[in-house]
């Protein structure tokens, strides 16, 4: 079985700093991590491989060549192949253009199954998996919590999905895209100390637009059908905390606070 896993590297959303003067996020120094949902997806793929060692797991990411080090860390965990799609032309692609680019690569591959995350912590649109599915003409489901691996190896996708609190069980035809949500069910194996510096560069292939042959007007800023006209910080009201006592006035203040903020 061939599984392709799409992985996105995102800046550290928790600790990212905002440049108030230039009105932009300071992305340059932010450390890159694997999007948590995508990590779960890869962990699930590796679990399948554990069950059936002849499964081939390939990871695909799109981004600047600077992600190579983190990318190698993923490859050190028994992943067979890593594809880095990178080209200056692709910079500034919105989800539409990104899906086109990834779709173009995936069309050339014969994956039995594609694993992805559901949403990313930075963009959080959940567009790309569904859009790629549309481009490839295959089904796709979001928020997968668990996957029946034995059944998968027999060609059936039995999915357990989290739909706004309810747990739903689906069967989906393959080939298809299974989009995971972050879960403790599937955890990435550790790289052992001896393996930290293992050379995996022979597993990496870089694809540029020369390989994918997309038209300039289909990718990058030009190919994006949405554009960000501006960004701004959410108005965070300063924490001027108000102190009250346990008297009628104080309790009333608490009551009004709860009402104002919509808790009552």
């Amino acid at each position: 079985m061939k599984i392709i896993c799409l992985v996105k590297f995102i800046p550290d959303v928790e600790n990212i700093q905002f440049d108030k003067k230039k009105n932009v996020l300071m992305r340059e120094n932010a450390k890159l991590t694997v999007n948590p949902d995508d990590e779960t997806a890869l962990a699930a793929a590796l679990k399948v491989k554990e069950l059936a060692p002849d499964t081939s797991v390939e990871i695909v990411t799109m981004g600047p060549k600077g992600v190579t080090r983190k990318f190698q860390d993923l490859l050190r965990r028994d992943v067979d192949k890593g594809i880095l799609i990178s080209d200056a032309l692709y910079v500034g692609s919105d989800t539409y253009a990104t899906s086109r680019i990834l779709g173009a690569y995936l069309k050339t591959q014969q994956a039995d199954c594609i694993f992805t995350g559901t949403h990313s912590l930075d963009g959080d649109t959940s567009h790309v998996p569904a859009q790629i599915a549309e481009i490839l003409g295959i089904p796709q489901m979001n928020n997968v919590i668990t996957l029946d691996m034995d059944q998968l190896l027999q060609g059936k996708a039995l999915l357990q999905v989290n739909s706004e609190g309810d747990t739903l069980h689906f069967q989906m035809n393959l080939p298809g895209i299974i989009s995971f949500e972050k879960s403790r069910e599937y955890k990435m194996p550790y790289i052992r100390y001896e393996d930290f510096q293992r050379d995996v560069s022979d597993k990496i292939k870089i694809f540029s637009n020369e390989d994918l042959q997309l038209k300039e007007e289909e990718v990058g800023l030009t190919g994006s059908l949405t554009e960000v006209s501006r960004t701004f910080m959410k108005e965070v009201s300063k924490k001027d905390s108000i102190t009250v006592k346990n008297d009628d006035e104080g309790i009333e203040r608490v009551y009004q606070f709860l009402k104002e903020k919509g808790y009552l």
Binding site: I16, L121, T226, V228, S229, T231, K234
Partner: peptide
């Protein structure tokens, strides 16, 4: 028309326009 949405786990707001 600008459509406003949160990004970066709600740390940032983005105003988006449709070009299609």
């Amino acid at each position: 028309i600008e459509l406003i949405r949160p990004a970066y786990s709600g740390k940032l707001m983005a105003a988006i326009r449709n070009r299609g």
